[in-house]
């Protein structure tokens, strides 16, 4: 049997009356970039929040590396190497850079005391090598409130990268970004692939998704409407299929 980095089997989830996901099967292979497409309300966010342990599914199984995992929580998902770059970026605006980079995973010495020196040094290194902040004005102690949208996105991505993730989830990462910053971001997604990791890439923009994904999954109204390997399908064919799904709710 083929082994997947991550697999969801027959996962369903509803919020009070609204069924958000119905019998969804979804997998991410080793070193594979999966593009996830779907309209607002198709269930993309719910799917992501289940994978990251933020929500628990009503039914179905979640497997990591072929092993089923019961009651996935945020820390457990993290331990298994799931890292997320959220749409809302999950940053704390009034705090400084190092506190944001190490949010929830502060480096500590004994008894939970912070190793501020090391966190500053690491942040400084990341800033220069990954984020491209070279100015003396930005230090690990800079409050991130004044950063641009792209800079904040960079912080969120570098944070995910730093913690040696196996599966990096990018939830609408291009939203609100300038064109040049978007290009930088897509480059980073290709870096994930090159580094031998897996990724789930969610975006409204089908061109961005087609650009970087190995496989594309179409979600529609809480179910998987279709699944294609990029090499078996041209961009035009994909667009046609998406239109068909949007009109009829099915692939055929």
């Amino acid at each position: 049997m083929e082994s997947y980095r991550l697999e969801l089997r027959n996962v369903s989830k509803s919020f009070s009356e609204v069924q958000s996901l119905r019998d969804v099967n979804f997998k991410v292979g080793m070193n594979e970039v999966v593009g996830l497409l779907g309209d607002n309300g198709a269930g993309k966010s719910t799917l992501i929040k289940i994978i990251t342990g933020y929500h628990q599914p009503d039914s179905g199984t979640i497997l990591f590396n072929g092993q089923p995992v019961d009651h996935l929580t945020v820390p457990k998902a993290r331990q298994l190497g799931v890292e997320t770059v959220y749409q809302e970026r999950a940053l704390a605006d009034q705090q400084n850079l190092w506190r944001n980079i190490f949010m929830g995973r502060e480096l500590t010495t004994r008894l939970g005391f912070l190793d501020i020196k090391k966190m500053r040094a690491e942040t400084d290194r990341l800033m220069r090598s990954e984020l491209g902040f070279t100015s003396a004005a930005v230090t690990p102690d800079s409050i991130i409130k004044g950063f641009s949208g792209g800079e904040k996105q960079g912080v969120a991505i570098v944070r995910a990268l730093y913690f040696d993730a196996e599966v990096i989830i990018l939830d609408e990462p291009t939203m609100g970004l300038a064109l040049s910053e978007t290009r930088k971001l897509l480059h980073f997604v290709r870096d994930i692939k090159r580094a031998g990791k897996s990724a789930i890439f969610i975006d409204h923009n089908v061109f961005h998704v087609y650009d970087v994904a190995d496989r594309i999954v179409l979600l529609d109204r809480g179910t998987v409407a279709g699944e294609f390997r990029k090499d078996s399908l041209s961009l035009n064919e994909l667009l046609e299929k998406m239109q068909h799904v949007a009109e009829t709710g099915t692939l055929d």
Binding site: R78, Y86, Q95, G104
Partner: peptide
């Protein structure tokens, strides 16, 4: 550190596993 993060943006803090 968690106190500051929670007060600043509780949702972010929760998403980051605090």
């Amino acid at each position: 550190a968690h106190v500051y993060l929670i007060g600043d943006n509780e949702n972010s803090a929760r998403l980051m596993g605090i």
